[in-house]
Amino acid sequence: MYPPNFDYVAPASLDEALSALAGADNAKVLSGGMSLIPLMKMRLVRPTTVIDISRIPGLDAITDEGDHIRIGAMVRHAQTATDPLVNEHATALAQAAAATADVQVRNQGTTCGSIAHADLAADQPAAILALGATMVAASVRGTREIPAAEFFVDTLTTTLESDEILTAVKVPKGGKSVYRKLGRRGSDSDYPIAAAAAWVDASYGTISDARIAITGVSSKPYLATTAAQAVVGTDGSSEAIAAAASQATDGVVVLEDLYGTVEYRTHLASVYVQRALEDVLQ
């Protein structure tokens, strides 16, 4: 309940923030704080320095960049959920943001923060995986781009280096996507027990490309590659969808917890792949 002491800095520019991060031992970046602050209150995380990036101008925008949309580090879940650009071009992300936690958390927490935190059951990582997004990571060493597929390593672990800040997510336009979940308190309430985001490109009738991402099921949100392959080249028939659903957990280790056994989660992953595909192909 009562966080340990720390030094607090609120830089006015990204460069300043990156320098502070590079120069500090055991620093944490604070955007919305919805994951960091509870962990600090339980004293499970004890940073010596907290770098609050909320005062840096320009990070709170969603911008149209032609072939993609760019979501800045300080864009809150609520903004992602309601933004017309995101709803039009990255529906799954808007839906995942809308299904994240509750109103207050959506008002304060950030999309990039959720992605960087990489909870194994977070909503939005599944959407950005399915959408084929790119992470923009900055440090004093420069800026690099990381494909979503290479970003998530394990529970609470990403390829972000300790001196890097996730400054934006770039989500390509094109195709259609949805996000469907079963929450711990039923329907889409609370963290997902299992959820799936599906993206398809079916501009010319048959499905020319597809990506399916699943969260809440394994130690990280993952791309169900073989499941997606099962619908590529088809017209999205119920057989194709069933084939995809049956491969939802191929190659992954399914986790068990208070809300689901391995058998149940494996089944749910299939159900939600099926539901997501049915929705997106409607």
Partner: peptide
Amino acid sequence: LLTSSLADYPLPAAES
């Protein structure tokens, strides 16, 4: 105790 926080001890919310 595996359910010591409200994250793991789900009180019904209005939607439930």
